[in-house]
């Protein structure tokens, strides 16, 4: 009983993190939300009786993927700039 409610809670948390990762303009927050998705997936895999997959997801999805995204953001830039794009579209020259 409490087990099923916990799974529902985790699924909702995962979907919320996914929507947040897509909507957020600050890429740093979006990457951390992607890490949260992987963390929740680890718990769900463990509950669905797949401990091997849970270990892999914990090591690769949470730690390594997040850190290479972070290094890429440090190397490029932090914000997804939609604002400049909109200004360009409004100008009559375009």
């Amino acid at each position: 009983m409490i087990y099923l409610i916990l799974i529902f809670f985790l699924l909702i948390l995962m979907l919320g993190a996914a929507v947040y990762a897509v909507v957020q303009k600050d890429l740093l927050y979006a990457v951390i939300a992607t890490g949260v998705i992987s963390l929740v997936l680890t718990a769900i895999f463990y509950m669905l009786q797949a401990p091997d997959v849970a270990l892999t997801e914990a090591a690769i999805g949470v730690a390594l993927t997040t850190i290479i995204f972070l290094i890429t953001i440090r190397n490029t830039k932090r914000y997804e700039d939609d604002y400049n794009k909109k200004d360009n579209l409004k100008s009559p020259l375009k």
Binding site: D52, A54, T56, A63, L64
Partner: peptide, 21 residues
């Protein structure tokens, strides 16, 4: 037990990542 080459290798890489940072 649960785990194996892929998981263990990824965990070792995580340890090196910690030292590199």
């Amino acid at each position: 037990s649960p785990g194996g080459g892929f998981q263990g290798g990824a965990i070792i890489a995580t340890g090196f990542l910690l030292m590199l940072i």
